[in-house]
């Protein structure tokens, strides 16, 4: 039987290191993805994800399952990401939106090389441009809206949980998400219109 996150964390608290390894395997990919979309840099995302896991491990003695484990985990991750973005704000302002992406940012998002060998070179370029557009639309969102969209769309957390992570009310979260989707709708208008024609 699969142990729940809370059960695993309580086992970690009891000194079972293997349970921590299971939590690591369960959440390494969602966490790195979330942080990568937040800070837009893979190396930095992995460093922050490491920090999240270490903080979880350090807090094991005091862990009390008052909320869902994912709420706690992504709250730590969101706070670290927002702090990191604040610290690097000056660097960010100096970066051009059209500057070439680093290996860490783009290198992991080239599934086309192996994903679909039936696509022509031209189709591959179109697909790549399309994904770049989507990625940039997400990156343009204000930080809190971006966190809300990522937690809603990719982590599929419920509204109450996301509201707790972002320290806001559920109605404020719904409003935040609505504004984020409005902005994405405008940014992605050409792609949205193309889908509407299909």
């Amino acid at each position: 039987m699969t142990r729940t996150d809370v059960q695993l964390m309580l086992d970690v608290k009891g000194g079972d290191e293997q349970s921590f390894e299971l939590l690591l395997q369960r959440y390494r990919t969602p966490l790195v993805n979330f942080l990568f979309r937040m800070v837009k840099n893979r190396e930095q995302a992995e460093d922050l994800a490491q920090e999240v896991f270490i903080r979880v491990y350090r807090a094991r003695e005091e862990y009390v399952p008052t909320a869902k484990f994912t709420t706690w985990l992504f709250r730590i991750a969101t706070n670290l990401a927002l702090n990191s973005l604040r610290d690097h704000r000056h660097q960010k302002l100096e970066m051009s939106i059209d500057a070439p992406l680093t290996d860490g940012e783009d290198g992991d998002e080239r599934p086309f090389e192996v994903a679909d060998k039936h696509l022509t070179v031209e189709q591959e370029l179109v697909e790549e441009e399309r994904k770049k557009m989507i990625r940039r639309a997400i990156e343009k969102l204000p930080e809190k809206q971006r966190a809300a969209v990522l937690l809603h769309k990719y982590q599929e957390l419920d509204y109450a949980e996301i509201a707790k992570i972002l320290s806001c009310s559920e109605s404020a979260l719904k409003s935040l998400l609505f504004r984020a989707y409005e902005m994405l709708r405008v940014e992605l208008a050409p792609l949205v219109a193309r889908r509407g024609l299909k």
Binding site: E109, I134, V149, K153
Partner: peptide, 8 residues
């Protein structure tokens, strides 16, 4: 469209 982005 958001769902089209691959996982890292």
């Amino acid at each position: 469209l958001l769902g089209e982005l691959p996982m890292v």
